[in-house]
């Protein structure tokens, strides 16, 4: 192999740089789940909280396609309860403080969905 030292040094530097996210992650301690503010007067979301936490983006994706493409604008949840499919008129009616709910997790997970360029952000936040 030509230039063995340079090549090896290069590879080591590359690997070190490439894995920085992992290093910084390990160094900065364990991940703290952000304290999201749940709606005060509501007990029940469309699906159980664990499912919503993990799958809400897929559910919203599916809701959009069903409502817009199939005219199926009612969601029958796993418990049999019916909900109107609407981000603005169903989800945000309870979750009316996006800063204390949506943004909390989105920011700490570095995801930046751009819902509010079209959907009206509720004025619930102070």
């Amino acid at each position: 192999m030509y230039n063995k030292t340079y090549v090896l040094a290069g590879i080591i530097i590359f690997v070190a740089l490439f894995t920085t996210p992992f290093w910084t992650g390990i160094m900065s301690g364990s991940y703290q789940r952000p304290a999201v503010q749940l709606p005060a007067n509501e007990k029940e979301c469309v699906e159980p909280v664990e499912y919503m936490r993990a799958e809400h983006m897929q559910l919203l994706n599916d809701w959009r396609d069903q409502a817009l493409r199939n005219e199926a604008r009612v969601y029958v949840s796993s418990t049999g309860k019916k909900w109107e499919i609407s981000l603005q008129n169903t989800c945000l009616k309870c979750h009316n403080n996006t800063t204390e709910f949506c943004d909390k997790c989105h920011i700490s997970n570095s995801v930046y969905p751009y819902c509010w360029t079209c959907h009206i952000e509720p004025k619930g936040k102070k």
Binding site: Y75, V76, I85
Partner: peptide, 8 residues
């Protein structure tokens, strides 16, 4: 997606 509800 893992969708557990239905639509109508």
């Amino acid at each position: 997606a893992k969708i557990i509800g239905t639509y109508e």
